[in-house]
Design a protein around this nucleic acid. Structure first.
Length: 276
DNA sequence: ATGACTAGCACGGCTAGA
């Protein structure tokens, strides 16, 4: 099973590129962020033609997440409120469409678009920290359900210096400040692991390059698009790849896809009939 | 210190991204 994540910065603008990538790479699941389209205008037909069904949570112009899958999609959940109904704040945070999950082949796939935060002095930064605190409670509720979890998306946080092209200049600023890093670590709670780092300890691997200042040409990027796995799925991971070349496309997204390869479902626990 | 680019909305110049 292969699960991918990609902030496409408008699914309608990027439709041809996403379709081409799906045809070439053939992942089982592709989680999208920043679809930037209302649900009634989502381009379902283009993906159905490629064998993918979509679970979506979008809005006009901003945010928006979707899960494309060629495997059956079950039990779709939108927003934090799906698991935190009684929590003050969970419903308000749902006004921005940033959270969707679904059960696919026995895996709970959670697709997130974490708020950027703009700048440390901005009220958007306070919103980001509030959102991450809510994510922590959401993941605690998810944990209680007991399903294997793959949490993917645009986290808008570089957790470590090796995830930034110029850590001396950028550490402490937006996407690299201690409070947001600690808030994400608290949500992970030692139970979810950044699978890319299982296979690649070195710096110099980025998933986002700013459109400005020639960041792509100079390879000045950040690794802010992540795939986090529970212990059970981590044991099944055979690789995690950043599809860097996509950033060189004509009219690209500023992010590129990240893909995890999983030996799932584990064959040792299934017999020839696929029964347990 | 700021802005650079890109997209959406709507057709001029904002907001928002990161």
């Amino acid at each position: 099973m292969r699960i991918a994540t990609w902030n496409v910065n408008s699914i309608r603008t990027r439709l041809d590129q996403v379709s081409s990538w799906l045809k070439a790479e053939d992942p089982d699941v592709l989680c999208l962020q920043e679809t930037k389209v209302a649900d009634e205008l989502f381009p379902h037909a283009a993906f159905e033609a490629l064998g993918y069904r979509a679970a979506i949570s979008g809005q006009k112009a901003y945010n928006g997440v979707a899960i494309l899958s060629r495997l059956p999609i079950d039990d779709v959940r939108v927003g934090f409120a799906a698991l935190l109904r009684d929590e003050p704040g969970a419903t308000e945070l749902g006004e921005q469409k940033r959270v969707i999950s679904a059960s696919i082949d026995g895996v709970r796939v959670l697709n997130l678009y974490v708020p950027n935060g703009s700048a440390l002095a901005s009220e958007k930064y306070a919103y980001k920290l509030h959102w991450l605190a809510c994510l922590r409670r959401y993941l605690e509720a998810q944990e209680r359900e007991g399903d294997p979890l793959a949490m993917v998306g645009d986290f808008n946080i570089a957790l470590e210096s090796r995830d930034i092209h110029d850590p001396e200049r950028l550490s402490g600023g937006i996407m690299a400040s201690d409070p947001e890093r600690q808030a994400l670590r608290a949500a992970l709670d030692g139970r979810l692991s950044d699978v890319f780092r299982v296979f690649e300890p070195e710096s110099g691997h980025w998933s986002w390059w700013d459109y400005r200042t020639g960041a792509w040409d100079r390879d000045r990027g950040w690794r802010i698009d992540h795939i986090y796995l529970c212990e059970q799925l981590l044991a099944c991971a055979t690789g995690c790849v950043i599809h860097k070349a996509v950033r060189g496309n004509q009219q690209p997204s500023d992010h590129v896809p990240v893909v995890v390869h999983l030996a799932w479902p584990p064959e040792s626990t299934q017999d020839d009939n696929g029964e347990w």
